[in-house]
Computed example of a mutant assay.
Amino acid sequence: MPDTPRRRRLRASALLAALVLPGLGAGCGGPSGPVTLTVLATSSLTEVFGEMGTAYQQEHPGVRLRFAFGASPEMVDRLSDHTPGDVLVTADQASMAEAAGHLAGRPRTVAHDTLTIAVRPGNPRRIRSLRDLQRPGLRVVVGAGTVPVGRYTRRVLEKAGLTLRWSSEEISARAVLDRVRSGEADAGIVYITDLRSAGIAASSVPIPADLNVTAAFPAAPVQDSAHPDAAAAFVSWLLTPAAQKLFHKYGFINPPSPR
């Protein structure tokens, strides 16, 4: 066939597409677009991770974060799914230990927290201390003994030498707080950061430092992650000054710097 001007233009267009299109794909994180990381996290991190997600994506435009929040045991159970996720963040070391066979690296503590007594707005039952929670007729809710906030609560009560008769046990600190906020309970023991998230919907009765405990929030990449390098990078980022500043903003205690 004769080499007409039209055929030469078609060949030039095809060559240009072969050269330009791969470059466009690479600039957007690869042919399929940006990497999406699924972060399985305890519900107590809902607010801070909402802001962290925006901050991280601004620093890493090739990575998108998708968060799934719930009780720590629920998040650990999800690791047995066909597509478990990429990063796990729990509210205590015991929950993370239960996930040990599903993790790709050593868990790193990214934040600390402490406990407080959540009461209804204005504290109508005039609760002043842990000992007041023993009063007859008081509806007190706590975390179940199989979840982080429940384990921490029992340690506090043991240090205080108290035995409580609670009205219910809940699956997470947020569930305990919801009982108080709805008026179904007069008091509950939750993380300070959860109490802060309630705003004016709940009040706080402090637990003395000598009776309180420090809650640790560890994070680790998931072994079956489709993006292991990106997952490890996000966990490392949680310990950077930028991330630690956001944790502090939401009331978390920054962990000591690694030596």
Score class of each variant (00 low, 15 high):
Ala232Val: 06
Ala144Gly: 12
Asp194Ser: 12
Ser168Pro: 03
Ile200Pro: 14
Ile171Cys: 10
Leu239Gln: 13
Ala243Gln: 07
Ile171Glu: 14
Ala231Met: 06
Ser203Arg: 08
Ile192Leu: 14
Gly183Asn: 11
Thr163Leu: 13
Thr163Ala: 11
Ile200Glu: 12
Tyr152Trp: 01
Val222Cys: 03
Val190Lys: 09
Pro221Gln: 01
Ser197Gln: 06
Arg181Gly: 08
Arg179Thr: 09
Asp224Leu: 04
Ile189Lys: 15
Ser197His: 00
Asp178Ser: 15
Val213Gln: 05
Arg155Glu: 15
Ala233Asn: 10
Asp210Arg: 15
Lys245Asn: 06
Val176Tyr: 08
Val205Ser: 03
Ser168Glu: 14
Val235Ala: 08
Ala202Lys: 00
Val235Met: 00
Leu195Phe: 01
Gly150Leu: 02
Ser182Asn: 07
Gln223Glu: 15
Ile200Gly: 07
Leu246Lys: 06
Trp237Tyr: 09
Leu177Gln: 09
Thr153Cys: 02
Ser236Val: 00
Gly188Trp: 11
Ser236Tyr: 05
Ala230Ile: 07
Gly161Val: 02
Gly161Glu: 05
Phe217Ile: 13
Asp194Thr: 14
Val141Tyr: 13
Val222Trp: 05
Asp194Trp: 02
Val235Arg: 04
Lys245Tyr: 00
Thr214Phe: 04
Ala232Gly: 02
Val142Ile: 15
Ala175Trp: 05
Leu177Thr: 02
Val149Ser: 14
Pro228Glu: 00
Val149Asn: 12
Glu170Cys: 07
Val190Cys: 09
Val213Asp: 00
Gln223Pro: 02
Ser236Gln: 10
Ile200Trp: 12
Thr193Leu: 11
Ile189Gln: 04
Ser236Asn: 04
Ala173Tyr: 14
Leu195Val: 05
Gly150Glu: 13
Val147Met: 12
Val205Trp: 12
Pro218Arg: 08
Ser225Lys: 00
Val142Tyr: 05
Gly161Pro: 07
His248Ala: 11
Gly143Asp: 10
Ile207Met: 07
Ser182Pro: 00
Thr153Asn: 11
Gly161Asn: 12
Trp166Leu: 06
Arg165Val: 13
Phe234Pro: 10
Leu162Cys: 07
Trp237Met: 06
Arg154Leu: 15
